[in-house]
């Protein structure tokens, strides 16, 4: 298993849209439906020898939200970039994300081309 982009969103529509948008990057995409699901899947992937190249995470999710996911993820991985993809546009929430360890913040709606450009910046 090589590099993997983990897409974390409770909306199946958004997860599939992001995966389709990222096809052109050639990087394998895995999906998780909340922060806890992502942590579990990331552990499975890294235990199997895979490498998480980037996480793209929503904020408002049940079970574990995006901010808590970033905080937990940063306990085990300080360097892999996490880009938030959300409808949340309030400065306070963006600041919380930045303090938790987010690398970037994309406010929906997104266009595929812009998402690909952000990914290319973080995934070499």
């Amino acid at each position: 298993m090589g590099k993997v982009i983990m897409v974390i969103d409770d909306s199946p529509t958004i997860r599939v849209s992001v995966e389709i948008a990222l096809k052109s990057t050639g990087v394998e995409v895995k999906q998780a439906e909340n922060g806890q699901d992502a942590l579990d899947k990331i552990k499975e992937i890294t235990d199997a020898g895979g490498e998480i190249a980037l996480c793209i995470s929503d904020i408002n999710m049940p079970v574990m939200n995006g901010i808590d996911f970033i905080k937990e993820f940063r306990k085990v991985d300080k360097f892999t970039p996490v880009v938030v993809l959300t409808t949340e546009a309030e400065k306070e929430t963006i600041q919380k994300g930045k303090e938790a360890g987010a690398s970037g913040w994309i406010i929906k709606p997104f266009q595929a081309e812009d998402l690909v450009n952000v990914v290319k910046r973080f995934v070499k």
């Binding site: 909306s11 958004i14 849209s17 408002n60 049940p62 079970v63 949340e88 929906k108 709606p109």
Partner: peptide, 21 residues
């Protein structure tokens, strides 16, 4: 894309209140 966005606004508010889609 815009339709999904509008639904995400509402569902996001409900999730913040403790809901699950």
């Amino acid at each position: 894309r815009i339709g999904v966005l509008n639904m995400e606004y509402l569902i996001g508010e409900m999730v913040k209140l403790g809901s699950n889609r």
